[in-house]
Simulated scan of single mutants.
Amino acid sequence: MHRQIMGLQPGDRTQVDHIDGNTLNNCRSNMRLCTQKENKQNIRLKSSSQTRIKGVYYDAARDRWQAYICVDAKKIHLGRFKTSDEARNAYADAARKYFGEFANLG
C-alpha cells in the first residue's frame, strides 16, 4: 500500500521508509523515498538485544560498555566506556554523522 501511496511503479527499485518505524502508519507525512542503503540505516533495535541499547553491548571481561556502528557493511568500533549512557551517546553521535536524517537511535 505504501508504494502505491508514494506513486511507485512495479519494478521501481526505490524504497519507502516509514519515518516512525511503524509500517502500518501509511500517512504520507510519515513516509519518504529512499535507497535500500538508507532504509537499512533506519533499522530498529533487534528484539534479542541484551542491553536494549542499539549499537551497545557489555563486555564483562573488560567490565566496560562497548559501542559500535555498521557503515557500508563494516563494523566501526566507537570505543569502550564506563557507563552505558556514554556508550549510547557515542553511538548516537556516530549515527547522526554517518546516517543523517535516517539515523535511528533505537
Results as ranks from 00 to 15, higher is better:
Gly79Lys: 05
Asn104Phe: 15
Asn26Met: 13
Gln9Glu: 05
Ala92His: 06
Gln4Glu: 03
Asn22Met: 04
Pro10Trp: 14
Ala67Met: 10
Met31Phe: 04
Gly55Arg: 07
Arg96Ala: 12
Cys70Met: 14
Met6Asp: 00
Gln36Trp: 12
Thr23Val: 11
Asn25Trp: 07
Asn104Thr: 05
Lys75Val: 14
Asp72Leu: 14
Met6Phe: 07
Leu45Thr: 00
Cys70Ser: 12
Arg62Thr: 03
Asp12Ser: 02
Met6Asn: 00
Asn42Pro: 00
Arg13Gln: 04
Gly7Gln: 03
Asn104Gly: 08
Lys37Ile: 11
Arg96Ile: 04
Leu105Ser: 08
Phe102Gln: 05
Glu101Met: 09
Ala73Cys: 09
Gln50Val: 07
Gly100His: 09
Asn30Lys: 05
Asp59Pro: 00
Gly79Ile: 07
Gln9Lys: 09
Ile19Pro: 00
Asn39Gly: 08
Asn25Ile: 04
Lys37Met: 14
Gly21Trp: 03
Asp17Lys: 02
Tyr58Asp: 04
Leu8Thr: 00
Tyr57Ile: 02
His2Pro: 00
Asp12Gln: 01
Thr51His: 10
Asn42Asp: 03
Lys54Val: 08
Gln9Ala: 03
Trp65Leu: 13
Arg32Lys: 08
Arg44Asn: 09
Asp12Gly: 01
Gly11Leu: 12
Asp59Ala: 08
Arg13Leu: 12
Lys40Glu: 10
His2Met: 06
Ser48Phe: 13
His77Glu: 11
Tyr68Gly: 07
Met6Cys: 05
Arg3Val: 01
Gly11Thr: 05
